[in-house]
């Protein structure tokens, strides 16, 4: 995916804002700065414990805006419906989007609908784009990450991926795991309002925490050191991962982010996050180093050290 981005899209669309490779672009608009982002949502199943495709489509785009330090304001919604999708299901998805938008304090102000023949799509695809305003003095992007910065994570990791997998694969766990999908905008606002000098934010979606950390290390040209025992993982997620042979550090979240702040502000940032219910178990998990550049090393619970690599393709459940 990264290679496709570099070889095709970045090359074809050449733009300084795009080249930042952040979750959203920040562009000047008169005297103000506008954050702008887009994302398409495809998930099987469309309903899962703790959420559905509609919620994801709102939260996901709101979160991408929040990761630029912006206050999310307006969204668009595009729907591609496969012929045969039940109207009742579509109503539920739309109601869920309305509810999520209300909660995030954003308005869905424009949209589009297309219907395609049966077999030409997988039920329902949603695209949302969003804009937000970046306040003066706020500058959040990978280039600001400095050696010595502290790395925090806003909550326990891996819930969303396990929630979706448990429905998709029909796995029944003793304690059902609900998706963590949520808006991160209030957490970001709390950090900025408290005067924390946030250098960079990244939501830990596809590929989980490990992928987000690797992307930042590559884009910022720094090394990262992460303490494995410091990363919060819920007992039930850890159990499910153990059973399925998955590493929770690579399992997707939809309501978690990593936060890079200067070391002296790390404890303050953690306290601010912990005061919010969504950040109750926020933790400091590591630090930024000079190098090796573009690499994330993990201090294991036994005190050994190893690479926390970018995965090639998806994590596949293993044999035994």
């Amino acid at each position: 995916m990264r290679q496709l981005l570099e070889d095709l899209f970045l090359e074809a669309f050449r733009s300084p804002a795009l080249a930042e490779r952040h979750d959203g672009a920040v562009v000047p608009l008169g005297a103000e700065r506008l954050a702008f982002t887009t994302d398409s949502y495809v998930v099987t199943p469309r309903f899962f414990p703790g959420g559905d495709i509609g919620k994801l489509a709102v939260y996901g785009t709101v979160n991408d805006l929040a990761m630029t330090g912006a206050k999310p304001l307006y969204l668009s919604a595009g729907f591609i419906l496969e012929e045969g999708l039940s109207l009742d299901e579509l109503r539920r998805v739309v109601a869920s989007m309305r509810e999520a938008a209300r909660e995030c304090g954003v308005e869905i102000v424009t949209g589009d609908t297309k219907v395609v023949d049966r077999g030409k799509a997988d039920g329902l695809f949603i695209n949302t784009s969003g804009v937000g305003r970046v306040s003066e003095g706020v500058s959040v992007h990978p280039r600001r990450v400095r050696p010595g910065d502290a790395v925090l994570v806003s909550g326990d990791v891996g819930r969303h991926g396990i929630a979706v997998l448990s429905v998709r694969e029909g796995l029944a766990f003793e304690t059902p795991v609900a998706s963590d999908c949520a808006s991160l905008a209030p957490l970001v606002a709390a950090l900025l309002e408290a005067g924390v000098e946030v250098h960079c934010l990244r939501d830990t979606t596809r590929g989980g925490l490990a992928t987000a950390l690797n992307e930042i290390a590559l884009d910022a040209g720094v090394g990262l050191e992460v303490d494995e025992p410091a990363v919060p993982v819920d007992e039930s997620v850890a159990g499910a991962c153990e059973l399925l042979g998955l590493d929770p550090l690579y399992v997707a979240c939809e309501g978690r982010m990593v936060v890079f702040v200067p070391e002296p502000q790390a404890e303050r940032a953690r306290e601010v996050l912990c005061r919010h219910p969504l950040g109750a178990v926020a933790a400091r998990i590591g630090r930024v180093t000079e190098g090796p550049r573009g690499m994330v090393s993990l201090r294991t619970r036994l005190g050994g050290q190893r690479l926390l690599d970018l995965l090639s393709g998806e994590q596949l459940p293993r044999i035994c």
């Binding site: 690499m295 201090r299 050994g304 190893r306």
Partner: peptide, 14 residues
């Protein structure tokens, strides 16, 4: 080895 040790990260002295 590729996944965990590709560029031998400096080992802490135990």
């Amino acid at each position: 080895y590729y996944r965990y040790r590709r560029f031998q990260v400096p080992c802490p002295t135990t």
